[in-house]
């Protein structure tokens, strides 16, 4: 069953179109990775789902219903959570307060969920009283993801979660993404570290110049000559 689908999207800021006829799909339980060179429109594609820029053609479908150009506040309520690449935690709020804010739109008792998140990220449980701004880059990513998971979303959108992290943390983040996915949350992730990302991806899309270039399973794309030449470096 398809959780999220972008169907032939044209989108951009104002009159400047960045995406041309983009189509993406995320099925239930999948990790889908979007890779591509800088400026290919990867992050833009995520933002267009979230109502952060103007979609001029095509449509976005969440499960059965169309959510094209729905404002971000409502998209969240519909069960789509988006973790931006930077500025994704409230630095002056404690870790716990960040998670509570993640649950802002919930009106039920979210404390059991809070315990689940802490069980998933034991590091954060230790630091629950610390301001999120005092944590390391990797831990902040954890807070940001934990915050998004507080809503028990239908799908999680991650924008380059490993950007700016050391290789050690990168591996940890990819493991975490897999762990989150294992709890049943489908993930649509944009990544710069193509090789590692493809390693955990069920399926992947390659975007170039705002257009779909290749589509396939992770292993297929890893084996693809052109993809290897473009993104995985000479040694790939």
């Amino acid at each position: 069953m398809t959780v999220l689908a972008l169907e032939h999207i044209d989108a951009g800021y104002g009159d400047t179109a960045i995406l041309h006829d983009i189509s993406l799909q995320v099925e239930r339980g999948e990790i889908v990775v979007v890779i591509g060179p800088n400026g290919a429109g990867k992050s833009t594609a995520l933002k267009s789902v979230f109502g952060l820029l103007n979609i001029t053609a095509g449509r976005v479908v969440l499960e059965e219903s169309e959510i094209t150009n729905t404002p971000p506040e409502q998209v969240v309520r519909l069960g789509v959570c988006y973790v931006p690449q930077t500025g994704n935690v409230f630095v002056n709020l404690s870790v716990q307060e960040n998670l509570e804010m993640g649950a802002f739109v919930r009106s039920d008792d979210f404390r059991p969920r809070l315990d689940e998140i802490y069980a998933m990220f034991p590091d954060l449980a230790e630091k629950r009283r610390q301001p999120a701004g005092s944590l390391s880059g990797g831990q902040r990513q954890m807070v940001a993801m934990g915050k998004a998971l507080m809503l028990e979303p239908k799908i999680l959108l991650l924008d380059e979660p490993t950007a700016g992290l050391s290789p050690k943390y990168r591996g940890e983040i990819f493991q975490t993404v897999k762990a989150i996915n294992a709890t049943g949350v489908p993930i649509l992730m944009v990544e710069q570290n193509a090789k590692q990302a493809l390693g955990i991806a069920d399926r992947a899309y390659v975007l170039v110049d705002g257009e779909n270039r290749h589509t396939g399973t992770g292993p297929e794309l890893l084996a693809d000559q052109e993809v290897a030449r473009m993104f995985l470096g000479a040694k790939g």
Partner: peptide, 16 residues
Amino acid sequence: RAVSDSPELAKLTGIP
């Protein structure tokens, strides 16, 4: 306090 910290993120988090 969250909005004071980052209005953009507050919006993405669904805070009205």
